[in-house]
């Protein structure tokens, strides 16, 4: 780890069968290329890529596997701001990371610079929030969704009348 040791933003940790290093977003491309291509590491398999919202900052976590060591390598990219999280894409090393990055974008709003197809992957294109963020609350989302959390599909209605009815929220007594 000497080759990239001065790029670490935190101490190297070892717990159970995982080695954990922490870096800043500007060093992602360099560190990932080194651990992937340097003959001393040869972390060929990108086992996972995911986003994390710690409540105060965003992180991107990579898990890598090499045949040379029995340990997993966990690379945590820390210090992404919650307002505008940006991190370089690793699709130049593993093009299979494309969808994983799209997923992290969809769920956390993390922008992966260099990903050629960074759009939502699960949620509909007109969706506006990022579900796995810690400030995302389920009742708020239901109230904001296009169906407003309510579908009166089985009620009789006049031809031409909109199927959408006023939302009933807890505490109101319009029809109760």
């Amino acid at each position: 780890m000497e080759a990239v040791g001065d790029r670490f933003s935190g101490p190297l940790r070892q717990r159970q069968d995982t080695t954990e290093i922490r870096i800043r977003p500007q060093h992602v491309a360099e560190v990932m290329r080194t651990v992937n291509e340097d003959d001393a590491f040869r972390f060929e398999i990108l086992a996972d890529l995911c986003g994390v919202d710690t409540g105060t900052e965003m992180q991107v976590v990579y898990h890598l596997w090499s045949a040379l060591t029995p340990d997993w390598l966990r690379v945590i990219v820390e210090g992404l701001s919650r307002d505008d999280p940006r991190v370089p894409s690793v699709t130049f090393l593993w093009n299979g990371a494309e969808w994983a990055e799209r997923e992290a974008y969809d769920m956390f709003g993390i922008i992966f610079e260099g990903n050629r197809d960074l759009r939502r992957i699960y949620m509909p294109p007109d969706y506006t929030s990022f579900p796995l963020r810690k400030d995302f609350l389920l009742p708020d989302d239901a109230a904001r969704s296009p169906g407003e959390g309510f579908r009166h599909v089985e009620q009789p209605h006049q031809p031409g009348e909109s199927l959408r009815r006023p939302v009933l929220r807890q505490g109101t007594s319009e029809q109760q």
């Binding site: 717990r15 159970q16 995982t18 086992a47 996972d48 976590v61 898990h63 997993w72 966990r74």
Partner: peptide, 17 residues
Amino acid sequence: ARAWVAIESPRGQYGCY
């Protein structure tokens, strides 16, 4: 704490962080 596990499912590496 943080932990990562992976197992071999019929389709490949099933992981959980």
